[in-house]
Amino acid sequence: MKIPYYPGCTLSTKAKGLDETARAAANALGIEFVELPKWTCCGAAFPLVTDDVMAMVAPTRNLIYASKEGEKLVTLCSFCYNALKRANKTVKENPEKRDKLNDFIEEKYDGGVKVVHLLEVLRDEIGFKNLRERIKKDLGGLKVAPYYGCLLLRPFDEIELDDPEDPHIFEEFLQALGCEVVNFPYKTECCGSYLSVSPETSEVVAKRTYSILSSALRNGAEAIATTCPLCHFNLDQKQDEVAAEHREFTKIPVLYFTQLLGLCMGIDEKFYHFDRHFLDPHPLLEEKGLLLGGGQG
């Protein structure tokens, strides 16, 4: 199965581990990600004021590129997924904005592309039961806390991936990989997102990181899984600061969901880019015998 793929800007640099493990693992499952021949940044933050049509140009332009490649567009980053999906719904349902966007871009797009997240493809097209049967290596009960963050689930009436208050898709995915899923109350709570950019607001992100990670740790997590490079950055990079302030805090590796999938599909070491993580997940994976060639298959 071939599916047009939108990587987005961060996946080409800082989050290469998310991009490359996804492509390789999908390939091993018979899904070929066909990167759009031409794409730009999606704009990241979907505009929330009624008159800001300009910020919808970038996602719409990418949707138009996608419409020339197929009926669906798969993406991985929660920001891209959110921006593309919401812009698409706007084009589809708001004739005034649709006309404005089409006039500006000089195209005739009607919102026909279906934007999907890889988790959705795994759930709806491969099926988690089938995925369970096809993995080459079981994660052997690795205790993983699924961290959804915000944009993968909200706003529900536009994203419609899963229940925004009580989601299950990430848990079911991790179960299929043989993880012991750690339920924790902070799984859909924001990490602070772009507040990390401003020196005036970034301390909030360290506080959020402490709350989220210590809750996962209290519930027995050995690792955190995420889909979003900004959640990953915030939760991973702030741990030194958190550990300096809270002596009882134990650092915990943050992994992309596709890195876990990659381990299960026997994907080559070169695709993970663990060197880009602030906290090296190697010691944990080695201890659990999950690195290539190690442990029980």
Partner: peptide, 30 residues
Amino acid sequence: FLEISKLSLDFLILAPQQAFVSGFRKYSAY
């Protein structure tokens, strides 16, 4: 609310692009 000159070089090197794109969309006029 945010000027690029206020950001530390360390942060500019470390942070993912989406943090800057979303941050400046929220914190500056564009």
